[in-house]
Design a protein around this nucleic acid. Structure first.
Length: 890
RNA sequence: GGGCGAUUGGCUCAGUUGGUUAGAGCGCACGGUUCACAUCCGUGAGGUCACUGGUUCGAAUCCAGUAUCGCCCACCA
């Protein structure tokens, strides 16, 4: 044996070590699946949810990539045919929002650049931001196959988009029609219902008089119908006034007309069920072009819809004297005029729901326009069946209900966006109004209906909603629509991991489009992680300044520490608070591991053939490792990552460091054992460390890899000659050693009892004190004798005397091996005696309770035998403890 | 207006298909220069599991209701 060449630095330096390790993994091509799937291997495929190309990663992204990476690394170690595919999303509206701000600083704007130059600028911007994200993901440790990196705006995605749309068109699931859509007057585009976020706000409810029409067609100054509205400016687009059919207050009015202020339009007074009699005045102004509810009323009553607002929400030429005014200016102006006329009856503060653009916060304007729609009904039904039949599982399961409810009430999807950055809709109009949808890269040859040549066709200028290309992500990334080898080998994928906040935005669309395009569910499991909140439970946001920058944390405490902090307190679907204490916990654990490894590497015996019977410490530790392996495996298979983190934390810190290493130190110093035995203990300790590193690797890849390499040089058997941990095999659980565990449990209980006594007696921590144990039986004598060295070292007692208690001992503690007391003449502290008395009382209470329970016929008769048996044993143990504590020593 | 989730020691959270003595980390108290680690070690205090009722031999766990908080969905102008 030789001394290890590599020594671990006194302190783990994440910032300098981690990038180098990632490089090593990349150099070894460790994240790329083998050219061919290993025979008989299971498949595990995760397509990374593509972060927005323009954004920096936040803690949500960090959590996503950690959760995925833990799963992926585990399956890779299992030998599964594993793929973890990276990519970014072009985020059309989001990217334009960001770029607009960037170019504004350069004195430019969308208008000043024009579509073509704007898009060029966008591509350049992408080139700047993409490497940032790539680098950040590497710093987080995400083991992505970079050779397969994709982008939702690359040519592969473009082809998939065209093909998918063409297929939907051919299947009759695409239509173009006029409808009221959500319009953002600032972003100048349609947005989806989901991007229109509703909030309670306090506005004003105005009651306004519409004068009734007299026989001569003029407004009657003395007769009116009062309507309540929160948006007076929209009255310019009114085409009716509605009341409830059974509202007798208005009986004489239905069928008559009111005269619209300012414009003098005749408004029929109609009866419609949707009017709430108790709200406002019971009469509603109907503005079909600017209110979705009114639009439906208009449909029922065949009323015209008059658009009075332009793209930027200014009053258009339909607005008479108000034309050109912003909607809010127009509101004020109209109200002023109405007040002058005495036609504003009331204005009261009013709680109402306001829809705002998720991106920019502008109040969304319902707007009548011609749009592309996807008929999602049939698609939604199929995905409902998938989830109901369990072909796709959603974690946590209660989101399946949420998903189903949404799917059952889904509206057709307006997929067109009036933006520039994105996939242009592959539809062409011919001068005769025919529409041709084509999936060829260079468009159709001719009009599909009349055969006019391509040169006469004009392509739609609208682009697709970002979520359309994102909806194709699980298979467009694998080569669809071509039948590529990757498509055959990796599709359908395994787990789709993302935040529950985009269940509808994204997951639902992947499900619908995946089933439609490929005929199968794109993944078998949807794992929804929760949101990360700041210390007080509030949402993290940059503006509040309470967000944790994951890359900053990585720089400070290392990716592993951050991974541990986030994963250990994550459960699917539930939010977590990221606190400094958790981050410290992660850092401390990394440090602990590092130091345990340093100890192993520095404590190697210089000689010895490593042979002989394993010591109790070794046997026990191996058994603990076996148990942890079995449990961690089960937890990872069940996607219980928090549980897995707890398991490995406990075995590494509590079992390995706190108990095992302390015992191994004793083994390594025990001269009597001989050199070979000492060497054997050390090798065993190194091997167990190797096992722990394997278990920990998916969670903390960097620090474990770094230790692994040093460990491999010092103890090849610990790494089985595998130079890279990332490639090592996931451990198989060996059988437990029940005997060793039981012996250890007895011994450690005695150690604890003695430590307890020492503290109570106020024995100086470093002092060696005599111990006397009154054994419970011959086996106990045996156990104490064989464990004497451990007992001495762990409890710092010497000498140890085993004999029956002959004299009164106040400072006595019970243990499975027998009553123990310290041979100290030191004054017995009153508190210690009190403590023992309290324990004694507790024991007596429990004995009484158990006797009663076991004396209850219904319990003995109806409870399972095992439960009854366990209670009997528990009672016996308590009785023994009672005997030890209370025994009269005469 | 519907729906969902949460409520466990000071804080953050675990708690497997109900099994009797509810765990962990942090914090706290006390003691520690034991040759891996003070980013550490040892010992300890601290909880009638939000409330009420029910089912059961047995409930933090299952059922019903109540309260508080949070989230999602929804067309009362």
């Amino acid at each position: 044996m030789t001394t290890p060449r590599r020594e671990l630095a006194p302190r783990y330096d994440a910032a300098s070590v981690e990038p180098a390790i990632y490089e090593r993994w990349m150099a070894a091509d460790a994240f790329r699946p083998a050219d061919e799937a290993p025979a008989g291997a299971e498949r595990f495929v995760v397509i990374q949810p593509p972060p927005n190309v323009t954004g920096a990663l936040h803690s949500g992204h960090a959590l996503t990539s950690f959760v995925e990476d833990v799963m992926v690394r585990y399956h890779r170690m299992r030998g599964d045919d594993t793929l973890f595919l990276p990519g970014v999303d072009h985020a059309s509206i989001g990217a334009q929002f960001v770029l607009d701000k960037v170019i504004a600083e350069e004195g430019e704007s969308r208008a000043s650049l024009g579509r073509e130059r704007y898009l060029e600028r966008m591509w350049r911007f992408m080139d700047e931001t993409r490497p940032v994200i790539r680098d950040q993901l590497r710093r987080l440790g995400a083991s992505l196959d970079w050779s397969r990196e994709r982008f939702t705006m690359d040519e592969g995605s473009a082809r998939a988009v065209r093909r998918a749309f063409k297929q939907l068109w051919d299947a009759g699931l695409v239509y173009r029609g006029e409808a009221l859509v959500n319009w953002c007057p600032r972003c100048l585009t349609t947005i989806s219902d989901l991007e229109n976020v509703h909030r309670d706000e306090t506005g004003t409810l105005w009651t306004i008089r519409y004068h009734l029409e007299r026989d001569d067609g003029t407004p009657d100054p003395d007769a009116w119908i009062s309507v309540a509205t929160t948006r007076p400016e929209t009255l310019l687009g009114d085409t009716a006034v509605a009341v409830h059919p059974e509202d007798e207050r208005f009986h004489g009015l239905v069928g008559r007309h009111a005269i619209l202020p300012f414009l003098g339009r005749r408004l029929p007074i109609i009866a419609d069920e949707h009017v709430e009699r108790t709200f406002g005045t019971g009469a509603v102004k109907i503005t079909p072009a600017h209110d979705s509810e009114d639009y439906e009323v208009a449909q029922r009553h065949d009323l015209p819809a008059i658009t009075v607002l332009d793209d930027e929400a200014r009053i258009n030429e339909q607005g008479g004297e108000f034309a050109g005014l912003d909607r809010y200016e127009a509101r004020e102006r109209a109200l002023e005029r109405l007040r002058d006329e005495g036609d504003v009856e009331a204005e009261t503060p009013h709680r109402m729901v306001v829809g705002r653009c998720e991106r920019c916060g502008t109040v969304v304007e319902p707007r009548l326009s011609v749009q592309w729609f996807i008929r999602v009904g049939p698609l939604a039904e199929r995905t409902l069946a998938s989830v109901r039949k369990g072909r796709t599982k959603i974690l946590p399961a209660h989101f399946e209900k949420v998903y189903a409810h949404w799917m059952e009430n889904i509206h057709d999807w307006a997929v067109g966006r009036q933006l520039w950055w994105g996939h242009r809709i592959p539809a062409w109009f011919c001068p005769d109004g025919h529409v041709t949808v084509a999936d060829a890269a260079d468009g159709p040859d001719a009009c599909a209906e009349c055969g006019r040549p391509a040169a006469e066709l004009r392509q739609e200028t609208d682009i697709f909603d970002t979520w359309f290309s994102a909806g194709l992500w699980p298979f467009s990334t694998l080569g669809w629509p071509d039948e590529t080898p990757d498509m055959a080998r990796f599709y359908p994928t395994s787990v789709m991991e993302t935040g529950y906040d985009i269940l509808f935005f994204w997951v639902a669309r992947m499900m619908m489009l995946g089933l439609f395009c490929t005929g199968v569910e794109p993944f078998h499991t949807v794992y929804l992680h929760g949101m990360i909140r700041a210390e007080g439970g509030v949402k993290m946001s940059k503006t509040k300044g309470n967000s944790v920058d994951p890359l900053g944390m990585v720089e400070e405490i290392g990716a592993d520490a951050l991974r541990f902090a986030l994963i250990s307190s994550s459960a699917p679907g539930s939010d977590q608070r990221l606190t400094q204490a958790k981050l410290d916990g992660g850092r401390n654990f990394t440090n602990k591991l590092w130091n345990a490894a340093r100890f192993i590497l520095s404590s190697r015996p210089q000689s010895g053939a490593a042979s002989g019977e394993p010591t109790l410490a070794v046997r026990w530790m191996r058994s603990r490792l076996a148990e942890a392996t079995e449990r961690a495996t089960r937890q990872l298979d069940a996607l219980d990552l928090g549980g897995y983190a707890a398991t490995v934390y406990e075995v590494a810190w509590s079992d390995y460091c706190d108990w095992f290493l302390e015992m191994v130190k004793i083994d390594l110093r025990r001269a009597a054992a001989g050199e070979d035995a000492r060497a054997a203990s050390w090798v065993a300790a190194a091997e167990v460390l190797g096992g722990i590193l394997r278990l920990l690797h998916p969670l903390m890849p960097f620090v474990t890899e770094e230790i692994w390499q040093a460990l491999g040089e010092a103890a090849p058997s610990a790494t089985e000659g595998e130079p890279l941990l990332v490639r090592a095999a996931w451990p198989r659980a060996s059988p437990r050693d029940e005997i060793a565990e039981a012996s250890f449990d007895d011994l450690s209980a005695l150690v604890r009892a003695v430590r307890n006594l020492r503290t109570e007696a106020g024995t100086p921590a470093g002092a060696w004190v005599p111990l006397v144990v009154d054994p419970v039986g011959p086996e106990a004598v045996q156990a104490i004798e064989s464990g004497a060295a451990y007992l001495e070292g762990l409890a710092r007692v010497r000498p140890i005397e085993i004999r029956n208690r002959a004299e009164p001992a106040q400072l006595v503690a019970a243990s499975p091996l027998g009553a123990a007391w310290l041979g100290v003449d030191a004054a017995i502290e009153a508190s210690a005696v009190q403590r023992r008395g309290a324990r004694l009382e507790e024991v007596e209470r429990n004995i009484e309770r158990l006797r009663e329970l076991l004396g209850t016929p219904s319990f003995v008769a109806r409870a399972p035998v095992a439960v009854v048996e366990r209670e009997r044993e528990r009672l016996a143990d308590l009785e023994e403890e009672h005997r030890q504590l209370a025994a009269d020593p005469t």
